[in-house]
Design a binder for these strands. Structure first.
Lengths: 183, 183
DNA sequence: TCAGTTCCTGACCGATCGGACAGTTTTCGG
DNA sequence: CCGAAAACTGTCCGATCGGTCAGGAACTGA
């Protein structure tokens, strides 16, 4: 067992950073803040990571990977089934990676500019397409965008209801919003 | 006519600031950036405004006022009519104040902490209540939160469809999401 | 024309940022 | 027990931040 795996400082840093990034944003959190939360020096962070950006990318990697998997799964579905699958998969992932999604949404505009997250923009576009049931209709795309932006907002809020109940409420609410045969 | 009203520098500052704040966030925009966009010195900004925060608050004041008016109007409605009125009013205001809402949502978490925007949090809560048709049911509140967070996201995106069409798509999509008798 | 107000500039300030670096403590295999 | 690698610290750096200040230009009413 390697030494680094035992001490766990690296994981502590990632945990503290994700909490702080989610609470005050990436730009709003300094290396000093993270070091203080972990209980080490700022230089220790830069020993474990190549810089502030490296902490962010490593932090978001699992979530990004999971969303890429979801997309691969959705790509295999036909137009009829993709909408509901996209809704359920999206809600599940956002809930599972609450903190990471909060971080990502918190500084979205300028985070997307970074070359490291160039793929996120395309990922968002493909997910939007799936939520719209691959329909090019403006109304369908607007509704899909509303779901894409709205679901994370709900998950960020500590709304005091259980995960199972929240999940079902979100899936049904989003499905209603995306239902082209609705009101 | 006062001298300041003629030169219009003050308005230029507010316009440039709102554009930059919306594009790169409040924290992500420096006074230098604004001065550069306006074509004046950084000191000129601080001659017209008491500080960076003062620019933000003055920028957001018309939007905040409009949302307060909306709430006052909603408060007079009974539980049956409040939901649809809230959806239409909310969509209208978000579209009218696109840029301001983008700024507000871009740095929401830490902006809400500011004493100057203490009222915004309560405003959000009351609007949420109205969108949920004043229902305390967790599912209704989750759907309302989804709409509250999702509609601004759609308006920020330059989605290339006309305002009228976008408005109708948003109102209908949001109404579907909030419909308790739906799917 | 001239005093007075408004408008604006360049230079400067302390604080804080992300990061670099040399040196010290801690840990572990042999 | 010891030498080497790993883990970490204190200190310093240049850049940039929001904000201050004294003074100069530009316009105004008399």
């Amino acid at each position: 067992m390697s030494r680094s795996a035992r001490s766990g400082t690296r994981e502590e840093i990632l945990d503290a950073a994700s909490r702080l990034f989610a609470a005050t944003g990436f730009k709003g959190t300094s290396l000093q803040d993270i070091a203080g939360a972990v209980g080490c020096s700022k230089a220790a962070l830069l020993y474990h990571f190549d810089g502030k950006d490296a902490i962010l990318t490593e932090l978001l990697a699992p979530a990004v990977g999971a969303f890429e998997e979801l997309e691969a799964r959705l790509a295999a579905l036909d137009d009829g089934a993709v909408r509901l699958a996209a809704v359920e998969g999206f809600v599940d992932l956002v809930m599972r990676f609450r903190r990471e999604v909060t971080v990502l949404y918190g500084d979205l505009p300028d985070l997307l500019q970074r070359p490291a997250f160039a793929g996120v923009q395309e990922m968002k576009d493909r997910l939007l397409d799936a939520l719209a049931g691959r329909s090019p209709a403006p109304a369908a795309r607007a509704a899909a965008l509303m779901v894409l932006g709205g679901v994370p907002v709900v998950c960020m809020e500590p709304c005091g209801i259980g995960d199972a109940e929240l999940r079902s409420a979100l899936v049904r609410g989003a499905a209603r919003a995306l239902d082209p045969s609705g009101v």
